[in-house]
Write a protein that binds this DNA or RNA. Structure first.
Length: 492
DNA sequence: TTCCCTTTGAAGATC
DNA sequence: GATCTTCAAAGGGAA
């Protein structure tokens, strides 16, 4: 793992971000070997975390020591080189692989949520089933599969997938099959953490609808983009469980990390350039090299105002056009009472898309795990859920967290590629120092009336003693578990 | 309708 | 460099 290299290679590039790990020591390792329930493990780990936090000063394995030295090389320049190289390969008709091997850019909706409705991990989510077979695909899909294969090989060396082989391609295809038949033969289990879904498992997020074995998309040869030569199927009305695109709104290119948000179906970043129309809006996605390649050829500032939209004209969730309040005759009144400067400023603000910040590791983790926590618990309030997720985050192993840090790093990298001039400051409402919302300041050592709150019955996590709002117990336990409320809450 | 809550991490601003 | 502030997601709840 990168964070364990201690200044070694930086292939994964996440070692500069692993900061939240606590000294869990060998004890945790032993505990991890114990295959007891995840909740118990989380409980112990969380306890260890708390303990280590209190003894942080005495710990020789400080965060600073774990944190590898920052990268000396300009990551941006490095990535740009990779992108250019990838672009050249694409010009040649084939590109061997993405510069960011962490992106398969293929989605399987039915695997993106590995948890059963009751919150348990589904068997199919633990094992990637590969089935042999034969079929023929277009050259485009072959490229996509090669990318996926290479990605799989890199991420899961134990996965017996060979690029270029019909078998592997078919395996990939069949892995997306909704049919239980794909479980029958040539199963290739993927090593995963015993008590957590491999964060990258959802990367194999094919759309079974598009790649049903033996059912090649009939629309493939029907529509070919005259510019790119890439088959461009019409957008089936029921094609996307993620993108509420109307028929004909083809071309939205989901974010490579869209698998992380399968339920919301929100690709994080749009391709701000036009001209590229993807034949598989949901099943196959363009990789970072492709998107960045396009972005590099058509930088955002060269894109007319419609760059806040996809080529389809569908605004991307990552770009939120500032909502302009519809004031009746407001324009007339405003024009009378405001200066031209103010008008122009407002217009700029209106036109300026709101490019959201890239998600950090924890945000990515939250997006993936929120549904599970909601399913496991009866909680509904996000504040309470986030508390649980925060504790679970600390309970994650280093390796598991490292995956999210790596993804977050790629998020930032891609974001930087797509929006070179963007700054987090752009999203500051009212500028720095002018709080948009005032947060409640916690006084250190502040005792709260919720210290009576005890073990969370949902997650078996250590007691949470920093509850501060009267609605905490209600949020945490729900109305149907008022017997677990603390005294003050019960008396409310 | 808008903001708060709540979490962690990243990034910018300030001292 | 340390500290502070804001924002990113989420959705119920409060104002």
């Amino acid at each position: 793992m990168p964070q364990l290299n201690g200044g070694g290679g930086d292939d994964l590039g996440a070692n500069d971000e692993l900061i939240s790990f606590k000294d869990e020591g060998e004890q945790e390792e032993k505990i991890s070997e114990n295959s007891s329930a995840e909740r118990d493990l989380a409980d112990v780990k969380s306890s260890l975390v708390n303990e280590s936090e209190t003894n942080q000063n005495s710990s020789s394995d400080s965060e600073a020591e774990r944190r590898p030295p920052p990268r000396s090389e300009s990551f941006r320049d490095k990535s740009r080189e990779s992108l250019e190289e990838a672009a050249k390969r694409q010009d040649g008709g084939l590109f061997k692989g993405p510069p960011y091997p962490g992106y398969p850019f293929i989605m399987i909706p039915d695997l993106t949520s590995p948890y059963l409705p009751n919150g348990s991990l589904s068997p199919t989510a633990r094992t990637l089933h590969i089935q042999s077979g034969s079929t023929h695909y277009s050259a485009y899909k072959t490229i996509e599969h090669q990318i996926a294969i290479q990605y799989l090989q890199m991420k899961w060396p134990l996965l017996d997938v060979q690029a270029g082989s019909l078998q592997s391609r078919q395996a990939l295809k069949d892995a997306r099959s909704p049919s239980p038949a794909h479980i029958v033969s040539n199963k290739v289990p993927v090593v995963q953490h015993p008590h957590h879904v491999h964060p990258l498992t959802p990367l194999i997020t094919y759309s079974n609808e598009h790649f049903t074995p033996g059912n090649p998309p009939p629309h493939l040869p029907a529509d070919v983009d005259p510019k790119t030569g890439i088959p461009r199927p019409p957008h089936p009305p029921d094609i996307s469980p993620y993108y509420p695109l109307s028929p004909g709104t083809v071309g939205q290119i989901p974010h490579p990390l869209g698998w992380l948000v399968p339920q919301q179906g929100q690709p994080v970043y749009p391709i701000t350039t036009g001209g590229f129309r993807h034949p598989y809006p949901t099943a196959l996605t363009v990789n970072a090299s492709m998107s960045s390649f396009l972005s590099s050829r058509f930088p955002p500032h060269m894109v007319p105002p419609h760059h806040t939209l996809h080529t389809t004209g569908i605004p991307h969730p990552a770009i939120v056009t500032p909502t302009v309040k519809q004031e009746s005759s407001q324009s007339d009144v405003a024009s009378l009472h405001s200066s031209k400067h103010q008008d122009s400023k407002k217009e700029e603000e209106k036109k300026k898309p709101h490019i959201k910040k890239p998600l950090n590791a924890f945000m990515l983790y939250m997006k993936e795990m929120r549904a599970k926590v909601v399913a496991e618990c009866t909680l509904k309030e996000s504040a309470a859920i986030n508390q649980i997720l925060g504790r679970r985050w600390h309970a994650l192993s280093r390796e598991e967290q490292a995956k999210y840090y790596e993804l977050a790093r790629k998020e930032r990298q891609l974001h930087m590629q797509l929006y070179p001039g963007w700054s987090a400051r752009d999203n500051y409402v009212g500028g720095y120092g002018k709080k948009k919302k005032r947060k409640r300041d916690k006084q250190p050592g502040e005792t709260n009336e919720h210290s009576e709150c005890f073990l969370n019955p949902c997650l078996s996590l250590p007691p949470i003693t920093d509850l501060s709002a009267p609605k905490k117990c209600r949020a945490r336990f729900g109305l149907d578990q008022q017997n677990n409320w603390c005294g003050p809450c019960s008396s409310l």
